[in-house]
Design a protein around this nucleic acid. Structure first.
Lengths: 262, 262
DNA sequence: GAGTGGTCTAGACCACTGT
DNA sequence: CAGTGGTCTAGACCACTCC
């Protein structure tokens, strides 16, 4: 190994992988490591940054560097879509009892705190392409933040778009104070006569923007899952688009693909 | 903004977002930026590292720092599973003509270079849980690397596991020189009488290990998509597990969920 | 060879944590 | 308060790119 900071990182990485340093353990202080490896403190810090970027350690200002514990993950499954559709026409009481997120996570309604805000916009190039409608088409933009009661950071950032012209028939749908709507968006769409045929979800991963990192309280060096959900109705129209940002180290997305019998 | 390197990063980030610095543009040299902002070069480098971690710029040794272009993405869709199942019993000639990856990407068979290696192992704790079988159960581990002819880095790292006892009836399935098998693994499983009922795919994101970063030629600061695919047969047995590592900045996973009619 | 980023030093001072 | 990591300086020398 040519460079000093990589040699130091390799040595520490091996200690972690071999279990000599266990999750939660504190590493020797940066000054101690510098002395041990006969290098300057900034060089040791370069090595520690490598390990932090790999998600192996966590830096805590004033306390030390710690071996990271694997995160517990929240699950989001695509079975939620059929579940939501089946209930969309059901009685309000049943719809209000629990939502799709509670269905995925096994939590109760009271365990989640929910915030929504609405805004009327027009389609830019990106959304125009997603909806297959001309740029400038009026849309309703809805922003959602959902978090566990016990935690300060939301576990997802959702920005959802609906075609204004398709939903204006029900003024309640334009009113953010009616949120959370019992039964979710498929129930909302049902009130204006829209039935979904299928849902397409595109998943990629990238580093968070500083804004996303702050809102999700992401430690440096973690990534976000980006999910774009497209709702297509039985007339083959794109009636809804949602962008969902999920913390990569806390989230698992589960997709089940049923296969036809031979 | 309290700290110097964040102020510098913010200024440059805004220039990029506003389009004053466009994709492909070279930033001023680190020495120039240091002079411009009245800070030392290492401080400027701290700022540039922030932007690199956000995926906004790319460092090129000896050339400069460049605004990054958004990557073109390869798509992987779950429609491939039904497509593969439908062909699994078809004539060899048709199966050999094109595979699931070509189906997803729209490429020809000759555009892809394929490498496989087999190894016989026993289930560790992780795999034992995934298969719902006792630890120590004999498995066949298969490693695949697939890349475009024109590129040096593979676009996925696949490690796939099959239950040895279920496939040993066909010795060809234990022979890596028979790869690539026309029609893929569902066709392989068909030769030992296994039919799949469904496929479950779990997706998370995390920073790459150094080994993954090297093999996929990932620039620092990018993440990988981790996909665990579980194949369940019509007798509700887990008959296959695959771990797929995909470069987060080059890959899009598309899942379609069909919904039943009201 | 000129210009660029990559690595590294040997300190300084500040901010945070826990006693 | 002592100990920790966070920020920053003002250089040095090396490795790479391009002319």
């Amino acid at each position: 190994m040519a460079v000093a900071y990589e040699r130091i990182a390799d040595t520490l990485r091996q200690s972690i992988r071999a279990g000599q340093l266990r999750p939660g353990d504190r590493l020797p202080s940066e000054a101690k490591l510098a002395e041990e490896f006969q290098r300057s403190v900034p060089t040791v810090r370069d090595a520690l940054r490598v390990l932090r970027d790999e998600g192996l350690i966590e830096k805590q200002h004033g306390r030390g560097n710690f071996v990271r514990r694997p995160r517990t993950t929240a699950v989001r499954t695509n079975l939620r879509h059929q579940w939501e559709k089946s209930r969309a026409r059901g009685p309000v009481a049943e719809r209000a009892r629990t939502g799709a997120t509670e269905h995925d996570t096994g939590l109760q309604v009271g365990d989640l705190v929910f915030h929504a805000s609405y805004r009327e916009i027009v389609a830019d190039e990106n959304l125009s392409e997603a909806f297959a409608l001309p740029a400038g088409t009026p849309l309703l933009e809805r922003s959602y933040r959902t978090r566990h009661t016990a935690e300060s950071a939301p576990f997802s950032l959702v920005t959802s778009y609906l075609v204004h012209g398709l939903i204006a028939a029900n003024p309640d749908l334009l009113d953010e104070t009616k949120e959370p709507w019992p039964g979710g968006s498929q129930s909302q769409l049902y009130t204006v006569g829209i039935e979904l045929d299928r849902i397409e979800e595109r998943v990629t991963a990238r580093p968070p923007t500083p804004e996303e990192a702050a809102e999700l309280e992401l430690p440096p060096g973690t990534s976000v899952l980006v999910l774009r959900k497209t709702s297509i109705d039985i007339k083959e129209r794109v009636v809804g688009v949602s962008d969902v940002i999920l913390p990569g180290d806390r989230t698992e997305i589960l997709f089940t693909t049923p296969l036809e019998r031979w």
